[in-house]
Write a protein that binds this DNA or RNA. Sequence first.
DNA 1: CATAGTGCTACGTATTCCATAGCGCTCCCA
DNA 2: TGGGAGCGCTATGGAATACGTAGCACTATG
Lengths: 112, 112
Amino acid sequence: MATGTPVPGRPVRGSRTGRPIMAAFDLLGRRWALRVLWELRDGPVGFRALQERCDDVSPTVLSARLAELRDAGLLWQDESKAHQLTAIGRDLSRSLKPLLAWSERWAAETSR
Amino acid sequence: MATGTPVPGRPVRGSRTGRPIMAAFDLLGRRWALRVLWELRDGPVGFRALQERCDDVSPTVLSARLAELRDAGLLWQDESKAHQLTAIGRDLSRSLKPLLAWSERWAAETSR
DNA sequence: CATAGTGCTACGTATTCCATAGCGCTCCCA
DNA sequence: TGGGAGCGCTATGGAATACGTAGCACTATG
């Protein structure tokens, strides 16, 4: 699984260029990846708690996403095995904030 | 396919709440969704051209993603069948800009 | 010990994605 | 007016991914 993790600088699934944004799209465009980052935005969370927050995602997939995001350097595990964001991971989390605001405009738009 | 499209205000795959951000995660967390929005950021593009820009994504998936994004109100087709962003779609595209900047910091971080 | 809780893996099934082929249509130019 | 080239998009079968359930190993607590 480690070698399949998208990382900037080398070709990824869906792009031969290795451009960072393409690696990001590959990494984040996998099921539950965005959600996991989102649920970790306020601090460390254990495996089962994280699973609950993600509407009981199957442990198989959660484990795979966590491993990928860890390999990509976005999160890590402390001594108590809890998962939490790294500095660059928190940075990404902040970069996703505009998405929250957008989604509410989208909701307003859609309900009209 | 139309009924499976995530839309804010009703339950989506991965969340019963229907909160807009969750619908967005479901919609955008599908393969090629982010990439398609990205490639449409500068104006209308035809089906085959879009396919090329997305590193020859299979037409099956491209067609599915386009239908979902269309149902979600993020893009539409003009008379010549070219696909382009709606106002709210362009808004989302702008909201993704911070992601580009982040991906470059990530690349710098990773190569060290 | 026993019980309960946590982190995570195994494994079989369901869903999604993918590659290739090709249909129907329009445009162009002989 | 017909033949070719381009377009948008769908059909189909096989490969990859996600899902759901069960359960193992470990720790803390009684």
